[in-house]
């Protein structure tokens, strides 16, 4: 069965444990004899019981980086443990901004490669095989580390489902994971946070996602997407083309460099279906696409494809939904 020990990195948002960390803990339980969580920031002990309920036998506290970007201090703490011979066989890291920073720094500090874009993990003798999407997720490559551990995996959110289990009675023990010498790598500091206002469900947690692309023709036409999302109790999303064009904030972006979504319904309006977009939404349970080009790639994944003009179909759809409510 897999490896002896896996560490799962837990990056909290507003103190809360995100689904991505629970997904990784759930998967790690089947791959290792011992699973431990690594967390940082204020009051790590507050989430120990929750992490334990998902199988963490211990929680390692990498300290509070304060205003510093977390890449250097968290990687430093893990690398210090590895140097002392207390490291794990594998580290699982969710593919977030900070997760990628930690992974890159850790890889260089340990002089170990890192495998990114992981969408599956399997036990292979006393090691692990990782599956990762390449060419925008159209192909799956299976990879294996050949050198000494720890093996570093950066895993896309929603690759596994999160289920409690494997926990022991009560909250697991919290142990400090002291950082090594960080030199000048730890000098980047956050001076202000800016949150973009959003109402309704979060994009990556919504049951319905309505996304708009360049086919809307103008930033103003995005109002139709907002309205549809509201009528369906869902979240509005976007292709990168209209994020880059400044029509909507980056937080709306779905795809390889944006959010991965898995809603019950994904409604794509005026989106061509570039591989980089599809990698973020093709696992939606149902996909509906509206595009005026019948050869648009998005139709290859759509359960229902409407060949039509968004300016004709969407206003009628909005009226019909309003009439029902």
């Amino acid at each position: 069965m897999g490896v002896d020990k896996i560490w799962v990195l837990v990056e909290r948002a507003d103190g809360k444990v995100p689904p991505a960390a629970l997904e990784l803990l759930t998967r790690a339980r089947d791959l290792a004899t011992t699973v431990e969580a690594v967390a940082w920031g204020p009051d790590v002990a507050a989430v120990a019981a929750e992490l334990g309920a998902y199988g963490a036998a211990a929680v390692l506290d990498a300290g509070d980086p304060g205003d510093a970007l977390v890449g250097a201090p968290v990687a430093g703490a893990i690398a210090a443990a590895v140097a002392l011979g207390n490291g794990p066989d594998a580290v699982l890291i969710a593919a977030t901004y900070d997760g990628r920073d930690i992974a890159g720094r850790l890889s260089a500090r340990l002089d170990r490669p890192v495998i990114t874009n992981v969408v599956g993990l399997e036990a292979d003798g006393d090691g692990l095989l990782s599956e990762h999407g390449i060419f925008g997720g159209t192909q799956v490559a299976t990879a294996r580390f050949t050198g000494a551990g720890p093996a570093l995996f950066v895993v896309r959110p929603k690759s596994f489902s999160a289920e409690p289990g494997g926990g022991s009675e009560g909250a697991p023990q919290v142990r400090p994971l002291p950082s090594g010498d960080l030199g000048s790598t730890n000098t980047a500091a956050i001076v202000a946070h800016h949150a973009e206002e959003r109402t309704g469900p979060k994009l990556d947690e919504a049951d319905v996602v309505v996304s708009g692309g360049r086919g809307l023709g103008s930033a103003d036409a995005y109002a139709m997407i907002d309205e549809l999302a509201k009528l369906l109790g869902g979240a509005p999303g976007a292709s990168r083309a209209i994020v880059d064009a400044g029509w909507v904030p980056y937080a709306y972006q779905v795809g390889q460099t944006g959010k991965t979504v898995k809603p019950t319904v994904y409604l794509a309006c005026g989106i061509s279906g570039a591989t980089q977009h599809m990698v973020g939404m093709k696992n939606a349970k149902n996909i509906i696409a509206v595009n005026k080009d019948q050869d648009a790639p998005i139709f290859t994944v759509a359960d229902l494809g409407i060949v039509g003009d968004v300016h004709k179909v969407l206003p009628k759809l909005i009226e019909a939904l309003k009439a029902r409510s």
Binding site: R112, P113, I115, L129, G133, I134, G137, T138, Q139, V140, A141, T142, A143, R144, F145, T146, G147, K282, I287, V290, Q294, F299, T300, V301, A302, D303, L304, G305, I306, V307, G308, D309, K312, V313, L314, K316, L317, A320
Partner: peptide
């Protein structure tokens, strides 16, 4: 290199669904 790719396969393709050409009532 300390990682090897042991296999590459096409990702599970999604069966494509129903296509409707809008004639004013596709909504």
């Amino acid at each position: 290199a300390r990682q090897v790719v042991v296999d590459v396969a096409a990702a599970e393709a999604r069966a494509s669904g129903e296509i409707v050409v809008d004639e004013g009532d596709a909504h």
